[in-house]
């Protein structure tokens, strides 16, 4: 597909097509029907709760917020004393706890969204964790990652994510890291990131770029074709993931226990894992890999045919 072919329908909608482009589109799409659909769509809108109803509820919440504020100013002197005492306590605690780290972990089958003090957002995929120094965050934005996470980074100084297989330095704003065993994958969604392996080699990724790191060796940079965090989109794409790691991934996303019986563990899988429908996911894997399966509540057994 040429670079601009993927926006032709948008241009058509705005009446900005050249005659040649229009011909090309007409070959691929039934534009008349599409125009009719869009014409009818204009008579529809998304259902919402009425403004009046919503305001009534909101108004009482706002009044509550305001009251809290007034109370605070009314007893300001008392507060200053409390603040002083707390400050002394906090300083002591800081001295005692300086250097301590915070870990946030997502359980299997669950994802966790964490808002950092600088406004950066980290979406931690199921069965993964991040560790960072909470107190020193404003000076040192460094995170240790186990597993998989999506990062939406606020502008600021350097932002570094270390995983077991490599280090990702942020030069821009949105990216995702996945790692499993000796494999790692980094996808950049906005801005750019630098990916370094443990031997010090470094690659720069731009928007829509992805790279795999397999046993410390970099793949070529390729286009990931995703518009949002992969695990948010409801499916994960794997390139040559080892089947044992694949089983771990299934356990992580669905919180089940997976056993591989009489299956060659050196085999690898390339394809899609559906994340929101266990049966569909299992069915697809069994077809692709030519495995039989037995799925029973929290237990899944794959076996070779």
């Amino acid at each position: 597909m040429s670079e601009s072919e993927d926006i032709l329908l948008s241009k058509w909608l705005q009446n900005k097509l050249s005659a040649e482009e229009k011909l090309m589109l007409e070959e691929q799409y039934d534009l008349e029907s599409l125009a009719l659909i869009l014409e009818r769509q204009k008579t529809l809108e998304i259902q919402t709760v009425s403004s009046d109803q919503l305001w009534d509820q909101l108004d009482s919440k706002l009044s509550h917020e305001t009251k809290v504020d007034k109370n605070q100013s009314g007893s300001r002197r008392k507060l200053i004393w409390v603040a002083l005492i707390l400050l002394i306590g906090a300083s002591l605690a800081f001295l005692l706890l300086a250097g301590s780290e915070k870990t946030i972990q997502s359980a299997k089958g669950e994802q966790v969204r964490h808002l950092m003090a600088d406004g950066s957002i980290i979406l931690i995929a199921p069965g993964s964790s991040i560790t960072f120094n909470e107190k020193d965050w404003s000076n040192k934005r460094e995170i240790q990652l186990e597993g998989q996470a999506f990062f939406d980074v606020e502008k600021g100084g350097s932002f570094v994510v270390e995983s077991n297989q490599g280090v990702v330095k942020v030069l821009g704003t949105e990216f995702e890291i996945w790692e499993s065993g000796k494999q790692m994958k980094v996808q950049c969604f906005e801005g750019s990131v630098s990916v370094g392996n443990l031997t010090g080699a470094e690659k720069i990724l731009g928007v829509n770029d992805a790279i795999d790191l397999n046993n410390q060796r970099f793949s070529d940079v390729y286009n990931h074709g995703q518009l949002e965090a992969t695990f948010k989109s409801g499916q994960m794409k794997y390139r040559a993931i080892n089947v044992a790691s694949l089983a771990t991934e299934l356990e992580r996303f669905y919180n089940i226990s997976v056993r591989l019986e009489k299956i060659d563990l050196n085999k690898s899988f390339t394809g899609i894992l559906v994340l929101n429908d266990l049966e569909k996911a299992v069915e697809y894997l069994s077809k692709t890999m030519n495995w039989e399966y037995d799925l029973n509540e929290q237990n899944l057994i794959f076996s070779s045919n």
Partner: peptide, 16 residues
């Protein structure tokens, strides 16, 4: 804007 156009193209493609 290009990203918006791409997303809209995808939406329309899907609709069609």
């Amino acid at each position: 804007i290009k990203a918006v156009e791409k997303r809209m193209h995808k939406a329309l493609k899907y609709l069609s």
